[in-house]
């Protein structure tokens, strides 16, 4: 089984990289890009039967820094 973890900066935390991307899109002529947030996707190959709770524990302990980041877990 696989899990896909999305890690994003929390709302309200300034994302300087996202801002730089937004400026670059504007410079390329794409009008109307009002905000860009950049995060990361982490794909995990897991032994069958691994629970969502275990993946969340991985997020809390290592994959995300919950001081500044939020995460979502998708199992497939």
């Amino acid at each position: 089984m696989k899990a896909r973890v999305h890690v994003m900066l929390k709302n309200g935390v300034l994302d300087p990289q996202g801002e730089a991307v937004r400026h670059a899109l504007g410079a390329l002529g794409f009008a109307g890009v009002e905000g860009v947030r950049q995060g990361k996707v982490i794909e995990l190959d897991l032994a069958d039967g691994t629970t969502e709770a275990t993946v969340k524990e991985m997020c809390e302990k290592l994959l995300a820094n919950t001081v500044i980041e939020s995460y979502t877990v998708e199992l497939s």
């Binding site: 300034l14 300087p16 820094n65 001081v67």
Partner: peptide
């Protein structure tokens, strides 16, 4: 020290990148 939570807060990418 922030990642071990021995100190509060976090260090993010410099605002000027």
């Amino acid at each position: 020290l922030t990642e071990t939570r021995l100190l509060p807060g976090a260090l993010m990418r410099n605002a000027g990148l």
